[in-house]
Design a protein around this nucleic acid. Structure first.
Lengths: 259, 259
DNA sequence: CGCGACCTTGAAAACTATCAAATAATGTGG
DNA sequence: CCACATTATTTGATAGTTTTCAAGGTCGCG
């Protein structure tokens, strides 16, 4: 994408000085579990890019793997294109999360990543990271752990898609976002959906119309309030119940009895 | 290389002598892309276990991560238990495939693994593997690649579950098995399903009855012949078409017009 | 102000699950 | 080795959930 303009030293601009050590996300991101000294080495290879604007791509399918990316602020959506050109959303990535791990095996990105809002990114050249990992066992271990975590998350999500009703998927999605945002210091009760209904539907394997209906249904049931992009969670236990095994009842009846 | 340590010989039993070098799977498994000398080091930490009998567990949810496992022959099914105790099949693992990568992040297995038939396994103590990876960059890279590949595969599977019809899932499943078996030197046209219809259904997010019907439907359409556990693929192109975007037609009509 | 993208809502259709039952395999104990 | 109990698979009929199609509504932006 952009290689001509970037000299080895990319860290010297004032706005880019802030490093892992001062990053509020450092206990969610790579630095976790490596010593201060080692962190210095890591910081030297990490650079910041100009923030991405909404709808701007971080990488596209087929792009060579040049670096891994960590979201610093904002949201990134990853997606692939199916054989017939349709979009398939594979994930939404919040601050502290690492992007591009799926590109390592082929050396090229199998999917696209693009910003859902203005987004700030840390760039970690992969070859240098790998080199450093050989020298810093803690770093290697942390990378293994992060990849393992992603595999685990994917397995969990596969269960969601394979076994759960539309209601349960939606509830899980909202609770998941709430948790992840909470872990990053944002409110767990009230947040903005940076993605469109279409993206949510696509991600959850549902039709847009279904997602829309679920929002109204959840709202009628008193689980959440929805105001366009803004979500306010009013009943965590209720959502949990819906997200769990419970196939029906609670939410559905709340609407049916009302009508 | 300061590794003349007391080389814990675990390989000295006659039946266990065969090592990676002589393993027909070595270009599908960990050894891929590391030198002969390095391979010796790797072989020293790998041991073979007594073969698993059908239905025997390799590990269970919550078991501490002690080692990664590579399937040498046979098939292993991995599955988790949902909150309400139901089984959720997360994968079927053929010779040359690595098991347990999802346990690294927590240090404990989030899922269970058990043999679907008599199965031979290589055991790779994880801490030693990690240690070795620090010293052998090629090994580290290969591990990154294998984990990345799994993430990629999972993403692909998520698309299957989220976007594809029951027919497409089934066709993809059969083609996928065929390919993987073929890559391991088995026939691509004719193979045994080592898993039950129930397992297939569970894995694909379908009801058992649906799986059963799909088999008969595929057979009526001349795509495959099914004899209990034995599958013979007669029309790869047809299956491919069904597995792709094509939502209906070919297969369904083949049956409908017949009646 | 009006256009276009996004979202919501309703009605009908489609797909798949569920329920029920028959048949076929497998395993077990005598 | 057989008879019985058990489990797995198939098939049919019915019901439910979710999609699709169609249309109206809302928001943001030029």
């Amino acid at each position: 994408m952009c290689c001509t303009m970037s000299a080895p030293k990319i860290l010297d601009l004032g706005s880019l000085k802030k490093a892992c050590k001062t990053c509020g996300l450092h206990d969610l991101c790579i630095p976790l579990g490596i010593s201060d000294e080692e962190l210095n080495l890591l910081e030297q290879i990490i650079s910041r890019r100009r923030p991405l604007q909404r709808k701007e791509h971080l990488y596209r399918p087929g792009d060579r793997l040049h670096a891994l990316y960590a979201v610093r602020s904002g949201t990134v959506k990853t997606y692939t294109l199916t054989d017939d050109g349709q979009e398939q959303v594979t994930g939404f990535h919040l601050p502290g999360e690492l992007l591009g791990l799926d590109a390592i095996s082929d050396g090229a990105h199998p999917c696209a990543a693009r910003a859902l809002e203005t987004t700030s990114i840390c760039e970690i050249p992969f070859d240098r990271l790998q080199e450093l990992s050989s020298r810093i066992p803690g770093l290697q271990h942390q990378l293994f752990r992060m990849m393992s975590r992603e595999i685990q998350t994917d397995e969990h999500f596969m269960m969601l898609l394979g076994k759960k009703s539309s209601e349960a998927r939606m509830a899980s999605f909202l609770l998941g976002l709430s948790n992840r945002l909470g872990a990053r210091g944002f409110s767990r009760n009230e947040f903005n959906l940076t993605m469109s209904r279409n993206d949510i539907a696509n991600y959850l394997g549902l039709a847009v119309e279904t997602v829309s209906r679920l929002f109204t249904r959840f709202q009628s049931a008193g689980l959440v309030r929805v105001e366009r992009k803004l979500i306010m969670i009013d009943d965590f236990d209720g959502l949990l119940k819906v997200s769990g095994t419970h196939t029906v009842e609670d939410v559905v009846t709340a609407r049916d009895t009302a009508s």
